[in-house]
Amino acid sequence: MSNTLKKVLIVLGVVGLMVGSRFIAGMDEIPPISIAPEVVFRVAGYPVTNSLLLTLLADVLLVGLAFVATRKLRNGEGLVPRGLQNFAEMSVEGIYNLCRSVDRRNVDRFFAIAATIFFFVLFSNWLALLPGMGSIGVCRTHEQALVNPVHLEEQPVESPLEGAAPGEHTAEEHAAGPCGVDDEGHELVLVPLFRSPSADLNMTLALALISFFVTEYFGFKAFGLGYLGKFFNFKEGPIMAGVGILELISEFVRIIAFTFRLFGNIFAGEVVLLVMAFLLPWLLPLPFYGFEVFVGFIQAFIFMILTVAFIAMALTPHHPHGEVHEHPTPS
């Protein structure tokens, strides 16, 4: 048997296996894709969503790892790093140097926030890629899984992206699903226990708001009310006034951009993985998993570096014509 033939046979076998997996392990239909996080259970009306659960898991992991990694350091030992401590030092130092390359003088003031953004986003992106994170779950009705309970008195406009309205399908059609129906005939859906917090607008919006307010806080702290002169700048002619107003708008657009950049990337990645797994369950999702690992890192990095850059911009004196301001103290 020639070498070429062997290779061709291997390739054919792999492709055949991939196609065959569609019939061996394939799904009948794509699981419902929800843009909003789903409620796993409620505590006194407070919706505990699956993304919140993964948030807590990421918190515990991060703090636990940090605690273990720096145990020796906090006891005043461990000047020769080993293992986990070495890795933690490497990452923290890398982020610190990156932040310092952006703004040398004020790095100590915003470093904690920037690094926390990076680690938290990274963990929430990567943890959601672990097997079982999107597939193990509990059965809930549509109403139970909704974050914001539908107000029955106001009839919402029917939207096409929210999935099938309960009225369109009868419960019997979905009885073959993984959850079936409950006693009263309501259709049950599988609510995954964990969902990436980055694919939840609450988390991304919260981070975007934090980034925005921290930036403005540093700006006001450094320049006082003179910080507003960057936006309401009517002394230097109409063009500069227009630029100032544009800056003001872009300041608020940042919130939306931060929110939807992270959300869009991670959510789209999850949808792509789901669709690929639906098309051919075996091997096809593999390159996309690799790509999602990369995207998860890049998004965490971009969120951090943009926050740092915006803070650095807010801390830069913005009047080129020599008006006296209280400059940030060099440290």
Partner: peptide
């Protein structure tokens, strides 16, 4: 949920500052 995420982030930043950034 939004407020919980904000509080969560603040708490996480504090804990990481205390246990990770500061010692390192």
């Amino acid at each position: 949920l939004l407020i919980s995420q904000i509080i969560n982030f603040g708490l996480l930043a504090f804990l990481l500052y205390k246990f990770l950034y500061n010692p390192i």
